[in-house]
Design a binder for these strands. Structure first.
Lengths: 338, 338
DNA sequence: CTGTTAGCGCTTTCAC
DNA sequence: GTGAAAGCGCTAACAG
């Protein structure tokens, strides 16, 4: 590989001139400039990013750590981050934590060692909150994506989970549903507890009897599924809400296991949902995050943080959309519709 | 950030000793070693990977470029690559080409500039074959994943596409199907043409009339879908085979558009398929790649290539599995079963 | 068993 | 408008 020395020699200039034409960092006489450019061309010179980064202590790259890149919502966020990073000339280093705090910890280390200029983190459910503090002590620019922390002064970008669930509830109670099952899963994930809060809002809004509602929380998806199967034996439950894609999978399996079918004899709604929502049978009513835009926004926040390390941290929330489909339209409890 | 100099000073040794205890690259007296370790601890020293990589001209990282990380098969391959890389202490830099040759080109450049030790490439459909030659001239270790090239001397890892389709055909013709529609899509993707070859094998094997078969190729998925809708108006077609996940999406939409339903009045099978295959209704018969293992194998090939740059290139193919589900079991043509 | 030292390829003063 | 030279933090001869 040709280095700047080769180029400089061929162009008959000093390496500092080469550096300056390369970076446009000071005026160079057009003629000299031309010679340099030509020499670059002829030698096939390519900048050594490593040496450059070392000197500048800046890599023009950012890191993204996702708890599960397979989940559609995260995949889309990653897409948004990717796009926004590319648009700004940043390289993206991607890592998967597989919902595991240790792997996440390692990934963060690795990325920091690679000297990323900043980090976007969709943390695992069981991440130690102290992690954040230690990152901040190292002055590593970080923004949290989707998996937020309450009461931690850090830039965060999430969705309006509570409000979205409340809107969903308004829709469903409007349809006459009065006995809900909510699969809320791991309550260490703020998005899930927020959605659960929204559920309780909805119950109150509609004046439902709290005792009639089944709320399933817990880390163990299998256990949650079993409990739901048991509950569904009683036909009086008219609707199930799943608070995330993996929980939707468990809930749908439970419906199957209990011999109940959507939308024929029970309604169903989920957050985040599946790709190809119109191919999925039955078509599922879904509360969808603006995942792509969240990714884009995360990059924006991160860059501002990098540029102003001491600015006050912000939490940004984006509105979700309610996609109504046959899983709640087909079966309506208590009302007789056409 | 503390550097080796700080550590050396605190431990009262030279920086070369520090370097050697860090890398275990020569014997150090236990006592000295202890002092160094302690100093590392106390200074909170962390190795500067950039400087290290620059000196060693080796980054212990590899790059993976996939055409679409959202597609389940690729997501799983990425997972395998990730895992295998982590197991060997390699950092993985991931990039998405979004099935676009230009983006792919840029991603390759970026990764090479980051000095990855090697590259795993699931190339875009329209990638210029010359790309490979130019990579090889730069002596960049590369292995092709899934999207292979015929007649290019490079390490490759794929699936036994032709054979798998042939097996699928044997199954379907055994069920009595004689008029097939095959959605083969972009014939620049070797996996797709191989699957198509297998289809022709199957037609011959069963002594079917070639004129009865509908083969849909083409880059434009919308056009393919339209043609399929038109064809399906004629009820004599008893089975549709899609050669990839995106083509399956198109084909299922076409079934819908033509008012045909699986498995009631037409059978359906696909390659690669969807996540949660048992939730997807109807459950689809699927030829599944050992995607995870392909990813793992790719890392293996790459490492061998890095270690022996001049070894003879190999093409490895893994066997696929036939997952029979109701989309071909429910509806059988020409035979009367139970 | 340990230390000294010469760079890796680049950016950036400082000097002309 | 251009060049010389000092490092960035590290590894790896080379020399005891």
């Amino acid at each position: 590989m040709a280095t700047m020395v080769d180029v400089a020699r061929m162009a008959g200039v000093s390496i500092s001139t080469v550096s300056h034409v390369l970076n446009g960092t000071r005026n160079v006489e057009p003629k000299t400039r031309g010679r340099v450019l030509q020499a670059i061309e002829r030698t096939g010179y390519r900048q050594d990013t490593l040496a450059r980064a070392m000197r500048r202590s800046k890599t023009d790259s950012i890191g993204l750590i996702v708890s599960d890149a397979g989940e559609p919502a995260f995949a889309e966020m990653a897409h948004g981050v990717e796009q926004a990073a590319a648009d700004r000339g940043l390289t993206l280093l991607l890592a998967n934590s597989a919902e595991d705090a240790d792997r996440e910890q390692r990934a963060i280390r690795t990325l920091l060692e690679r000297r990323v200029d900043g980090l976007i983190l969709a943390r695992a459910a069981n991440t130690d909150p102290n992690l954040l503090t230690s990152l901040q002590q190292e002055k590593a620019p970080v923004v949290l994506l989707d998996r937020l922390y309450h009461d931690v002064p850090v830039d965060q970008i999430g969705a309006e989970n509570r409000d979205s669930m409340r809107r969903l509830m308004a829709h469903l109670t409007g349809l006459g549903h009065r006995r809900f099952a909510v699969v809320a899963g791991d309550t260490r994930v703020p998005a899930l507890t927020e959605r659960l809060d929204g559920f309780h809002d909805g119950v109150r809004d509609a004046g439902l009897d709290a005792a009639d509602q089944l709320v399933l929380t817990g880390v163990d998806v299998g256990a949650v599924r079993a409990l739901l199967v048991a509950d569904l034996a009683d036909r009086s439950r008219t609707v199930v809400i799943a608070c995330s894609t993996p929980l939707a999978v468990a809930a749908l399996e439970a419906l199957d296991g209990a011999g109940r079918s959507t939308p024929d004899d029970i309604a169903f709604a989920t957050f985040d949902g599946f790709t190809n929502p119109d191919l999925f049978r039955p078509r599922l009513t879904t509360v969808r995050q603006p995942a792509f835009d969240m990714g884009v926004a995360a990059v924006g926040l991160l860059i501002e943080r990098i540029e102003a390390p001491d600015a006050y941290p912000r939490t940004v929330r984006l509105r979700q959309t309610l996609e109504l489909r046959e899983s709640t339209e087909g079966f309506t409890a208590g009302t007789a519709e056409a």
